[in-house]
Write a protein that binds this DNA or RNA. Structure first.
Lengths: 165, 165
DNA sequence: TATTCGCCCATGGTACCCCATAGATCAAAT
DNA sequence: ATTTGATCTATGGGGTACCATGGGCGAATA
């Protein structure tokens, strides 16, 4: 399997390090990532983490915009300014910096959530709350639109698969 | 990686010096910048810092304007008249001049923000405020983008709509 | 002369390397 | 099925190199 799947909660040690789940590490290796790129998610207190391809994809998107309009500038500000590299140490751990803590609210434990081509980092309690919100939204969506909706909507999303515990 | 990424806040010492983040310095070297140019960003209290290519970028923008309009002349004046060199000392520090302070509002601390091919210098509090504005605009953009976005929105991740796959 | 600027070194903190260990997981064997 | 043993994984800690920061000093400048 070369997709990020399932989720796990690990503890931050006294030096501020936390193990990336072994399964995720093997995916990272299989996909040939040498560095991890982490980005603050827009409207949720989580970091999106992936390989350089994640960054490439964003930069391609930015390139489509008129480089002198505000939108392109905003996007670059977001992708470059609110992004960072996470270095895996030799034991497969990352250092949880203030930058990560600030956006996520992480203090002592880190939740890792597989999302297919990338994964996310959460503060465990907030993840739980968010999971319930997502579930409620999906339920409402299905009830509103009838039976065929689930398949049609989840086509480009991966939410239904990745979020379930 | 040879792009300016992530952000950091460093303190100005009693001599008016501040360290450029080590990661940025390595990018400067990798990209072969022999000198750093600092230009006033157009509509924000920040300095754009980069190599010669930074000037090219600005001039390209000016070229887009009608040369008979005042805008082009204003821009040229602004860019060429208000640029400086930033000299890195042996320990990778730059001196924060009054010129920098004036445009940015910097007093005791400097925020460095990666922007891909260049980086920016901000007063930390103003940066934070600007970041919130940018995020709000991007969020609005995504919500306005239409139906395909719904899934991407719960996926919570990026500027682009189709997040996974 | 007074001030600034560039170069040098010192230091505390942090990030990274290496190794150790307890618990979990899995396999084979009884 | 239970037990036993080998491997894998998360976690802890020691040591080291790097980095941000502070300060000294001499040369250039005003």
């Amino acid at each position: 399997m070369d997709r990020f799947l399932s989720n796990a909660v690990n503890r931050i040690d006294s030096k501020g390090r936390v193990s990336v789940p072994a399964h995720f590490r093997s995916v990272v290796q299989k996909r040939g990532f040498t560095e991890l790129y982490a980005l603050r998610a827009l409207d949720i207190p989580a970091m999106d983490v992936g390989g350089l391809d994640l960054l490439d994809r964003y930069e391609e998107r930015i390139a489509q915009e008129d480089p002198f309009l505000q939108t392109a500038d905003d996007m670059s500000f977001f992708v470059h300014g609110d992004g960072t590299f996470l270095k895996l140490d030799q034991d497969g751990r990352i250092t949880v910096t203030d930058f990560l803590r600030e956006h996520t609210g992480i203090t002592t434990d880190v939740a890792f959530v597989g999302r297919g081509l990338f994964f996310q980092i959460w503060e465990p309690e907030r993840l739980k709350a968010h999971g319930q919100e997502v579930r409620a939204r999906l339920l409402k969506l299905r009830q509103a639109a009838g039976s065929g909706v689930t398949a049609g909507q989840s086509a480009g999303s991966g939410v239904t698969a990745g979020q379930s515990e």
